[in-house]
Design a protein around this nucleic acid. Structure first.
Lengths: 333, 333
DNA sequence: TTGTACGCGTTATCAA
DNA sequence: TTGATAACGCGTACAA
């Protein structure tokens, strides 16, 4: 049973409010009593109750983060950024992973509401629309990461990132460039795919739909894509993958079949995971300012919480950076 | 402003207690009123407050998990196991990462206490001792993962895992086997180191302290260890790493210097991360039953919460499994 | 400087 | 079957 403020009051022979004041460093209280009560509280192992506090204060000094997938290290970096900004404002961060499952995403958001978090950050939402103010189902501020269509969002410009990396491949002489997508579900709204198409168009390269193969954002998706690519009547010379995990799958599957990267195929990833610099070969990829993305999202959310001035907040976009390493090379002649 | 039970009561023209009963499916209530109130609650966007509920119920139906490091995918798998078991008992899981920082670990545990979680799981605690019942600083049950000395713990037998993998190296003919540890801080209580020493002893191989080099559990630690190994007057032929991340760092650093694995050195990891099967070369490693570890930890915690019968709970140990892949090979002659 | 009284949202108990 | 009341732990006006 936790010790309550009343227990301390009884023990100290004062009223509960005096204890409350002592513990919260209130102005009008004798230094002596304050000190002795603080000492007593510590000795008795007092731990304040967020439940009771939040009930009266109508705030819990905590924000909830619903992340796409715990297993993806990309989100770990994002979390570091969020926690840093939150800690600076003395907010506690609570995390849950919805594993790319729309139902779980909504369940987590609902749980955060039940816990009366002060605000929520959702990465890569699968149900973006439901958070639109029109619905009014949510009574706390929500910031989305990488959903640039949402009014309160912080995103990396994935269109630009994809364009940059495809142009890099084109500059290396590649003309038949395959793309492994995140999955069929996302095809229409894929910014990466748009960037890919734009880069081709800018360089007058004709688009061939057979070069687009569905992955799933994980290693397995990359592995499964390879036989489809190799079955094409005319092989690609380069593969632009949805992310680094996919690229690792692709390189692995190619190696299994006796191909070498970048000798036989250039392969590019996206994300610049820590692993990208240590894989063999090291990955050419797109670095997203992940840490900054996190701090920006947290700051936007805190702004929404504090001033409640939704008008003052506009969607933010950060620019990604091309990282050239060894998995891409000039096309073989 | 969230809608409260009172708001609904006013709107429905009944008392708050009736609303509470309707929402909680209590027995003695007219089906009609129950249905209409439930409908009204949904329409008004009612979301119950865990704060208020927990205050009176003295339980929040949630457990906190403090994990070692978000960036380590090992913990993602563990979380899946925990969440699965928790969900089966209708418990919510809340996660925080302490990034191997003892202070943050204690801060998180304290926060969980403030939130009046029903119990806590801590992975790889850096401050194991502080949770011993003797201290009595904690009023909620705590289960530790991979701290077999603690009375309420679920662990993989790391001693056995290390012994298995070192014996595998010995069988391949290796005699000078280096070990990259988790860090100097952990040397005395390293079960992996014990397993390593035991394997050597069982095969009458003399121990050479210079072969033990400190890492940090991350890629960087592996990278930094390599120059120290290469500076030894007599080179090792194999390296047993604290974990897969360290092994990746080691292999990478060796490759940078023109060495090839396993031609020049055999390198073994520990954990069997997803990546281990896809790295180049694929890693020989030790698979921990990570998912099962998670479910077991959650079940133990739930037992402690429910029956409060500490006597009925004993530390559990699961057996790890040797996974042989391409990063280890017979010693060169 | 300290104590008293009330309310936050909810549930449980008792009475109607 | 329903309503009134108290209680959970805490903060804060207001009174002393």
């Amino acid at each position: 049973m936790p010790v309550s403020i009343k227990d301390i009051a009884k023990e100290a022979g004062v009223s509960p409010s005096t204890v409350s004041r002592a513990l919260n460093d209130h102005p009008h209280i004798r230094d002596e009593t304050k000190a002795s009560i603080q000492r007593l509280a510590k000795a008795m192992g007092y731990v304040p109750s967020v439940l009771a506090r939040g009930l009266v204060a109508k705030r819990t000094a905590s924000i909830g983060v619903a992340i796409t997938d715990l297993a993806d290290p990309y989100y770990a970096r994002l979390m570091l950024g969020i926690e840093e900004a939150a800690a600076a404002h003395r907010y506690q961060v609570v995390l849950s992973s919805y594993c790319r499952d729309p139902d779980r995403e909504l369940a987590i958001v609902n749980d955060f509401q039940m816990r009366r978090m002060d605000g929520i950050i959702i990465t890569g939402s699968e149900t973006e629309e439901s958070y639109l103010p029109a619905g009014q189902k949510f009574f706390l501020p929500i910031v989305l990461v990488n959903r640039p269509g949402y009014p309160f969002s912080v995103s990396v410009d994935r269109f630009l990132g994809a364009r940059k990396i495809v142009e890099h491949l084109i500059e290396l002489g590649h003309r038949r460039i395959a793309h492994i997508s995140e999955g069929a579900r996302f095809r229409d709204k894929s910014r990466r795919l748009d960037g890919y198409l734009t880069a081709l168009e800018m360089h007058n390269i004709e688009f061939d739909g057979r070069l687009i193969v569905d992955g799933d954002g994980n290693i397995g998706g990359g592995i499964q894509a390879v036989p489809q690519l190799l079955a094409l009547p005319e092989l690609p010379t380069a593969v632009f993958c949805f992310n680094d995990m996919t690229a690792i799958g692709v390189i692995n599957a190619l190696r299994q079949r006796g191909y070498e990267v970048p000798r036989d195929f250039s392969v590019a990833g996206y994300d610049d995971l820590e692993m990208a610099a240590y894989y063999y070969p090291t990955l050419t990829t797109v670095r997203q300012q992940t840490h900054e993305l996190g701090t920006r999202a947290a700051k936007m959310l805190l702004k929404l919480i504090d001033i409640d001035g939704e008008d003052k907040v506009a969607p933010e976009v950060v620019e990604p950076q091309l990282i050239v390493r060894q998995s891409t090379a000039p096309v073989a002649v």
